[in-house]
């Protein structure tokens, strides 16, 4: 019997999944370009390799499951996830580890659960966590942005390529390769419990980057692609946690605003935490989800020995989404 067709007498202004993903990618462009400008061609190589590898993985998985590859690819979800991961990893990561990241992202993060919409964990964060734990040394090897060498000299490209392929930092000409993000340096200071001063941290690109992500996020909010509940909850919870922390141990924490702008807090709040697939469905649940991510990431950032707690906070809260949904969703109706 012919299925009862839904009647589209007129095209109701409907946004398709592909256009949602497209708009999120669009809002990512300014931040990405800025990052490539500051941190050199490494970021570009990461970006290209990750997206290509994960698209390839998705294609093979779809072929194995005899499902049409075209529909899976053109909704752009895997490209977006790969793009997000590319922005969280250091430019000097060797290609082999990038491939591992891409495979984890597309297979372990998404397709083992049956494809788009059914994965409980955010694929980008799964990829990031697996990389961080399996390759701790290279993953925390952010070299000093002030020494970024310009894009134009061909010799630099050759060095980058060596660095990428053969993964031995000694080849690279610049010296202070072991510099880390301001957060790592912050930890070293805290270990020696010296007093922290802003200018001693090389902070220039990170502040602009976070502003770029903020702009992208506001654009998404304006277009209605994401809802305000999660980003606002994450940021307010983080700010509250940081202020409380700065009272508790004044000398070891950065001032609140600079702490917010370094590391992945803003980026995570607007792009990672708001992934609709792994976020709760009802409003109150989203607020609690966002608040706990903000809180957890601040706690993890200061106490655990990994530089950026945001990824783990998101994974933890993704695991609790089904339970949150059950509690908050049912009371929404009664």
């Amino acid at each position: 019997m012919k299925p009862t067709s839904i009647y589209q007498a007129w095209q109701y202004p409907r946004r398709s999944t592909a256009s949602i993903m497209m708009q999120v990618m669009l809002s990512l462009v300014p931040g990405t370009v800025l990052m490539m400008h500051w941190l050199g061609p490494g970021v570009l190589i990461n970006w290209v390799v990750l997206i290509a590898a994960s698209v390839l993985c998705e294609a093979t998985v779809m072929r194995l499951r005899q499902r049409s590859i075209k529909t899976a690819l053109n909704d752009g979800s895997i490209v977006l996830a790969a793009w997000l991961l590319a922005l969280c990893i250091p430019p000097s990561l060797p290609i082999s580890q990038l491939i591992v990241g891409a495979v984890t992202l597309s297979v372990l993060g998404k397709h083992v659960y049956g494809g788009l919409g059914q994965n409980p964990f955010n694929p980008a964060m799964v990829g990031y966590a697996v990389l961080l734990i399996s390759f701790p040394k290279t993953m925390t090897l952010w070299f000093d942005p002030n020494l970024a060498v310009s894009w134009t000299t061909p010799a630099v490209w050759a060095d980058w390529w060596n660095l990428k392929w053969f993964a031995n930092p000694s080849v690279a000409p610049w010296d202070s390769i072991t510099q880390a993000t301001p957060l790592d340096r912050l930890r070293e200071f805290r270990n020696q419990s010296a007093s922290v001063s802003i200018n001693s941290l090389h902070t220039s690109p990170w502040r602009e980057l976070s502003v770029a992500w903020l702009m992208g996020g506001v654009y998404l909010l304006a277009r209605g692609v994401i809802r305000w509940h999660i980003p606002v909850a994450v940021l307010t919870a983080a700010i509250i946690a940081l202020t409380v922390q700065s009272y508790l141990s004044p000398n070891t924490t950065l001032p609140v605003w600079s702490a917010m702008l370094y590391g992945g807090m803003v980026f995570g709040a607007f792009y990672v935490a708001t992934d609709p697939v792994t976020a709760p469905s009802s409003v109150r649940a989203r607020l609690l989800y966002g608040a706990s991510i903000g809180l957890l990431s601040v706690i993890l950032r200061t106490h655990s020995n990994y530089p950026e707690g945001f990824a783990f906070a998101v994974l933890l809260m993704n695991a609790s989404v089904p339970l949150l949904d059950r509690w908050f969703v049912l009371d929404k109706r009664s």
Partner: peptide, 29 residues
């Protein structure tokens, strides 16, 4: 002409349907 239902892709739980439901249900669940 009857509009055939176009090909459905996977649900990404974006809750657009929940916002328009007039009796406050959760169509994606």
């Amino acid at each position: 002409k009857e509009h055939p239902l176009n090909e459905a892709t996977a649900c990404i739980r974006c809750s657009e349907c929940a916002t328009v439901c007039p009796v406050n249900l959760l169509p994606q669940e």
